[in-house]
């Protein structure tokens, strides 16, 4: 049995799954729209939270949040599941598929067979949609793959119950009810305000704009505190987070710029176009940072680029992002 489900490519997995699911129910939104409306844009640097033994630097919100905020903003009802028992998780999935409901779910990428091997770290916040089953094979729409993939029952069970940092525990979600008329404009305003608020006002230095400054301060100390080799690895991890599949370039900054541009038209607010340009500038600066960092860890200029310079770069970026969000915060219908 296979549900008639349209698979669309997206830069980021969660945006993609959300967009594809909404599309199935007749709500057509672009990926940047989903990302902005769901306040996907964020920054955090959390030394206490480790991935591959290093501090996590993240350019987006917690997994699952985008879907939650978009559906809530549009008044769409969803149902979400979490399981202890893998068998039950698979039975519930079969049950939903039989009713003709496509199901989004969280999986770990390490055991995902169709993924290229070099992306397969123990990373557990990948989203896919399962939309059908034929015997032992499940049809999978993975927004970062160009075509529809299939997984066996055993493989799917394994990735749904991957272990490690943030285990998915068979989490899955589906849409249960869509209102007849969907108004995107208030949802957009709410999304933008939420992002601006989170970026500017969280009183813990690890998050938002302050998080960038926090990272800058710590990065400056890395060679002294951690030693040259570990500093390089940590820097490498930041770049991987910035550019790893699914960011649409420069840690989601370009997607957000695209979102602002789309909003300028939808909301009839031309001043958002200017901010979109600023945001593009921020993205370009992040890219420059990545280029500099890559030189640094390849040691191509024989120590010409120091960690101090990289840290200064981050401070510039933080100032620029702050300026954009101070303006965005004032938005209203």
């Amino acid at each position: 049995m296979k549900i008639d489900f349209q698979h669309n490519l997206a830069a980021h997995c969660e945006n993609g799954v959300t967009a594809n699911l909404l599309n199935f129910y007749g709500v057509k939104l672009s990926e940047p729209m989903i990302f902005g409306m769901g306040s996907g844009y964020f920054f955090s640097h959390m030394p206490f939270y480790k991935l591959n033994g290093m501090a996590v630097t993240s350019f987006r919100v917690w997994p699952g949040v985008i879907f939650k905020r978009v559906t809530r903003g549009l008044g769409i009802q969803v149902k979400r599941y979490k399981f202890r028992n893998p068998e039950k998780a698979m039975e519930e999935l079969d049950h939903l598929l039989e009713k003709g409901i496509p199901v989004g779910m969280l999986v770990g990428v390490f055991h995902l067979p169709y993924f290229p091997k070099e992306y397969r770290f123990h990373f557990n916040a990948h989203n896919i949609t399962v939309f059908g089953r034929e015997g032992d094979r499940y049809f999978v729409s993975d927004p970062i793959m160009e075509h529809v993939e299939t997984l066996s029952r055993e493989e799917l069970r394994k990735v749904r119950f991957a272990r490690g940092t943030y285990p998915p525990r068979g989490r899955m979600y589906c849409i249960s009810k869509v209102p007849e008329k969907v108004d995107v404009r208030p949802a957009i305003i709410r999304g933008i305000r939420k992002t601006a608020k989170d970026m500017l006002t969280i009183p813990i230095p690890m998050f938002g704009i302050d998080g960038i400054r926090f990272l800058s301060g710590r990065l400056r100390q890395w060679p002294v505190k951690l030693g040259e080799k570990s500093a390089i690895l940590n820097l490498g991890q930041v770049i991987r987070m910035l550019e790893e599949i699914g960011t649409g370039g420069a840690g989601f900054r370009f997607i957000y710029a695209a979102f602002l541009q789309e909003c300028a038209e939808v909301l009839q607010k031309p001043w958002l176009n200017d901010l979109s340009k600023e945001m593009t500038g921020v993205g370009d600066q992040w890219r420059e940072f990545a280029v500099m960092a890559a030189r640094c860890f390849k040691n191509r200029d024989k120590g010409q680029i120091t960690y101090g310079q990289l840290a200064d770069r981050l401070l510039e970026i933080a100032d620029k992002e702050e300026k954009v969000f101070r303006q965005l915060r004032k938005i209203s219908l």
Partner: peptide, 29 residues
């Protein structure tokens, strides 16, 4: 796998396009 990237075309409008890898990212990996 190709990455979907968002970029500005010559009229200043955002569109999405596929990228075939980027050096700094490859080096980090």
């Amino acid at each position: 796998i190709r990455d979907l990237c968002y970029a500005v075309d010559k009229d200043g409008h955002y569109t999405s396009t596929l990228s075939m890898g980027w050096k700094p990212k490859n080096e980090a990996m």
